[in-house]
């Protein structure tokens, strides 16, 4: 299953190779052309010469991860690895998680001093990242250096599985869900030029998308994303952002974008017309690639379609498979309605 493969692929920000290769394999022979640019964005193209609006779909390939910055030498630390975050990681989610490091996927665990040995006041506080280590079982620094080097990236070693009621858990649904939707969308036939941009470096500032949008210069752009979902015990309506299983979410405003109201309404009405559940994303915080895309060049019309993801940026994220499916249906409906001229620029 594509979502499983993508979710388990290794793609911390700046190290998206594995994900790019999975996508390239999936789309091989199914699009007119596929190119990588100098940043590592993978851009798939269909019908470049067709008339009509040039549409760009975007999903970012990168995920939050870690970078090994030091292999400790000497003393009790010897052979343990120091690391820093690649992208926004809450240090509180790190302790006691397994990780995979570097091109050889060397397994390791993130450890800390046992709770028994922590002073009462220490126990009250989250453990800061510079007090955590990755343990790969090395005997000493030389042993560790044989398999890991500073600069190697690491990801959480979370396996994909379906559980509960039409739900799936795994790592990096933000934004492998978007990648899966985009792979699927690139295989639909539309009468206008369609560009699928699988971008890099979203997690450190929407960087790949900005360059990709400049190259493509689309008339319409849609970012496909995983977004915050916190519809859990104790969360009031306005603190949830999105509700699990209630369909894809559309944005009115986030930290980087005030939505193009006409386009947001067009997508909303499309969902209603096609009987697809849809919801508004009800929070200001967070952002996605459209935040960078819409400001490129002369300005670009569009928006985003987001799949609610519980525990986004944590090692284990949870999505509703119905939401994923409905996001795909909505995207197809939107592409079809654009073809039918329901949205005029």
């Amino acid at each position: 299953m594509l979502l499983k493969t993508l979710s388990e692929a290794f793609g911390p920000t700046g190290f998206e190779d594995d994900v790019r290769n999975v996508i390239r394999g999936e789309l091989d022979g199914r699009v007119d052309e596929m190119n990588t640019d100098v940043l590592g964005n993978l851009i798939a193209v269909k019908g470049a010469k067709k008339p009509g609006p040039k549409v760009m779909l975007d999903a970012h390939m990168d995920e939050v991860g870690l970078m090994i910055v030091q292999i400790c030498d000497g003393g009790a630390e010897s052979g343990l690895l120091k690391f820093r975050a690649l992208g926004g990681i809450d240090p509180r989610v790190l302790v006691s998680k397994p990780v995979l490091i570097g091109p050889d996927r060397i397994p390791g665990v993130i450890g800390a001093k046992p709770v028994h040995l922590q002073a009462p006041e220490e126990r009250q506080k989250p453990i800061p990242m510079d007090k955590l280590y990755i343990d790969i079982g090395a005997k000493d620094a030389a042993d560790a250096k044989a398999v890991v080097k500073p600069g190697d990236a690491a990801v959480f070693a979370t396996r994909y599985a379906e559980f509960g009621d039409r739900a799936a858990k795994g790592k990096s649904f933000d934004d492998r869900v978007g990648c899966a939707l985009l792979v699927e969308a690139m295989q639909t036939e539309v009468p206008y030029p369609l560009y699928g941009a699988f971008t890099v470096q979203e997690e450190i500032g929407l960087r790949g998308a900005r360059a990709a949008a400049y190259q493509i210069q689309p008339d319409i752009a849609i970012a496909l994303e995983g977004t915050v979902c916190f519809d859990v015990v104790g969360a009031p309506s306005h603190g949830q952002s999105t509700v699990f299983g209630k369909g894809p979410a559309l944005t009115v405003q986030d930290a980087q974008t005030i939505a193009d109201r006409r386009f947001a309404e067009f997508m909303w009405e499309t969902a209603k017309r096609h009987g697809i559940p849809v919801q508004w994303r009800r929070v200001k915080g967070g952002s996605n690639d459209f935040g960078a895309i819409h400001r490129v060049g002369k300005g670009i019309v569009g928006g985003s379609i987001s799949v609610p993801v519980r525990y986004i940026h944590a090692p284990t994220q949870v999505v509703s498979l119905d939401d994923v499916e409905n996001a795909g249906r909505l995207l197809r409906a939107v592409l079809q309605e654009i073809a039918e001229g329901s949205f005029t620029l």
């Binding site: 009031p236 309506s237 306005h238 405003q253 009800r282 929070v283 200001k284």
Partner: peptide
């Protein structure tokens, strides 16, 4: 300001 939520 922008409306972001409407409750029951």
């Amino acid at each position: 300001v922008m409306v972001i939520d409407i409750d029951d």
